[in-house]
């Protein structure tokens, strides 16, 4: 247990700062928004409620967890708190891995917490499980993105902006890919084609979050267009690579 002290204190800090309360509050707000949207819908009110909840809670919880992570880690790096931690008999690799472990535990708890209202709304259990797994993998990848940006930029505002840009782009990556392919096929002006190729190239550099989880599975009670085997390697690849880059940045940094 002594070896996992950094992970333990990261979790304790999250508890001290009432992160769980914030998660619960977010879930309640998302349920309220979904209930309002479902009340306006003419048909399939129960499925609409669950689908709206899934769409809003996915965005909200990714934002809450990653904003918290970036704020805490940039503060640690800015105020040189990391230096104190590294005074313990742990290597920098251990420090980073324990941080990732702590945030992964938070992500696991969050994914399970978020899936409860879906189950309660009467969504098919198989769909709930698949959606929750996809959401969990998305949380893991976003945690690695946030840690990398925190190590890379060491400033909260820049890290948050970069995270928001990458996350929102990754959420629409397939659509951007399709859109730029259309422009290239249509044959626009020179600058349009260059930009389209640039956007197309960028879509290869980000995870395709659209495939991870979708509210339309819940709305139509059916999983389509995606396979767990296609997203699992994608998530593991991005998670591993981003963690390695973050580790490299942390090791190069002088304290």
């Amino acid at each position: 247990m002594q070896r996992l002290i950094i992970a333990k204190y990261t979790l304790l800090e999250a508890h001290k700062r009432s992160l769980i309360v914030l998660f619960l509050l977010g879930i309640v707000v998302c349920v309220a928004i979904a209930a309002y949207a479902a009340s306006l819908s003419m048909v399939d009110k129960q499925a609409t409620l669950a689908a709206f909840y899934a769409a809003t809670v996915r965005l909200a919880m990714v934002a809450v967890l990653n904003v918290y992570l970036i704020l805490m880690e940039t503060r640690n790096l800015e105020q040189e708190n990391t230096f104190v931690w590294l005074g313990l008999p742990v290597s920098r690799m251990h420090y980073l891995l324990q941080k990732i472990l702590a945030y992964s535990i938070l992500a696991t708890g969050l994914a399970l917490l978020v899936s409860l209202p879906l189950w309660w709304a009467g969504t098919d259990m198989q769909i709930v499980l698949r959606w929750t797994l996809g959401f969990y993998l998305e949380l893991l990848v976003t945690v690695s993105i946030s840690i990398l940006f925190a190590c890379l930029f060491r400033q909260a505002l820049i890290s948050l902006s970069a995270f928001a840009a990458v996350y929102l782009f990754a959420r629409s990556a397939l659509e951007f890919y399709q859109h730029s392919s259309n422009i290239i096929d249509r044959g626009g002006s020179g600058i349009e084609i260059v930009l389209a190729w640039l956007v197309k190239l960028c879509t290869f550099l980000v995870p395709k979050f659209e495939q991870f989880a979708s509210a339309s599975w819940i709305l139509h009670q059916r999983i389509f267009d995606t396979d767990l085997l296609s997203i699992l390697p994608q998530a593991l690849l991005f998670f591993g690579l981003l963690t390695l880059i973050a580790l490299d940045r942390l090791c190069r940094r002088g304290f």
Binding site: A55, L168, R171, S172, E175, A215, S216, L219
Partner: peptide, 8 residues
Amino acid sequence: LTLGESAI
């Protein structure tokens, strides 16, 4: 603009 949630 739908962030992959076009059904919503």
